[in-house]
Amino acid sequence: METPLLQVVDLKKYFPVSGGILKAVDGVSFSITRGETLGLVGESGCGKSTTGRVILDLIPATDGRVVYKGTDITNSVSRTLRREMQIIFQDPYSSLNPRKTVGTIVGEALQVQGIGKGKERSELILETMAKVGLSGDYYHRFPHELDGGRRQRVGIARALILKPSFVVCDEPVSALDVSVQAQILNLLQDLGQEMGITYLFISHDLSVVRHLSQRVAVMYLGKLAELAPASELFTNPVHPYTKALLAAVPVPKYRPDRKKVILRGDVASPINPKPGCRFAPRCTRAAQVCKSEDPVLRDLGGGHMVACHIA
């Protein structure tokens, strides 16, 4: 098998808070092969965004390793490496500096990296803007003059101007209406293929994740519950949480006989989590062992991994 582009090994991110330790990411391992899109799904507070940020060294890891192209880069992403690793943020309203023009925002990375000068730089900026479907007319405009879809195109242009090989997309379409969301998803798909980008695609929206990803990882309270090829995960989910999550998604089809299995209770606090499986308090199938021992991620064959004592 080809060496993966990115490997995450037992990654941990803890935050000290009043009352204890918040274990946002607590021993997550996965790898992404070159050109692949790995979807990372889960509900608010499960640690999916934190995972993306720790991988990119935007916040330091507490423990564990991030290996990129065979080199350990944990907590040490250099400026040169930053050219290859970029991020697209969720909210195109708060992630763009309101006092800078679109051209400046898109070209900022060139300035930081000292790439090009004057005309050469502005041509590269215009070329990248065209690539994401932004006309050059927007070069001197400010973010507030753009609608949500165009702002997100600015966010994408900014991330792609350095021609990165690995991009973390952190809920890139969650703030957008569906008709615009579809435009952006197609754009990410096209640019990914054209530029050979490997994506870590973080989202709470299972339909969006299934649409774009080859493999999907499901996170619950800082840990991976299940990881499998997309078609396998969505047709044959094994972890009780994945099953409940899929059952809870409202399907836009007329189906009066669809039966709902509704998950009870709320997500527990990630502060000082109890030993055992994180999902046990809400799991209908929880046994004694689930309350005492942490399940480890095991391979069921064909790359289908699950962390569950009973599945």
Binding site: S179, A182, L185, N186, S207, H211, V251
Partner: peptide, 19 residues
């Protein structure tokens, strides 16, 4: 157009048709 824009959870489309 709204339906064409929606990704399908059950039978994935290769491409969306945005408005």
């Amino acid at each position: 157009g709204l339906f064409g824009s929606l990704p399908d959870l059950e039978s994935p489309k290769s491409r969306l048709t945005p408005i």
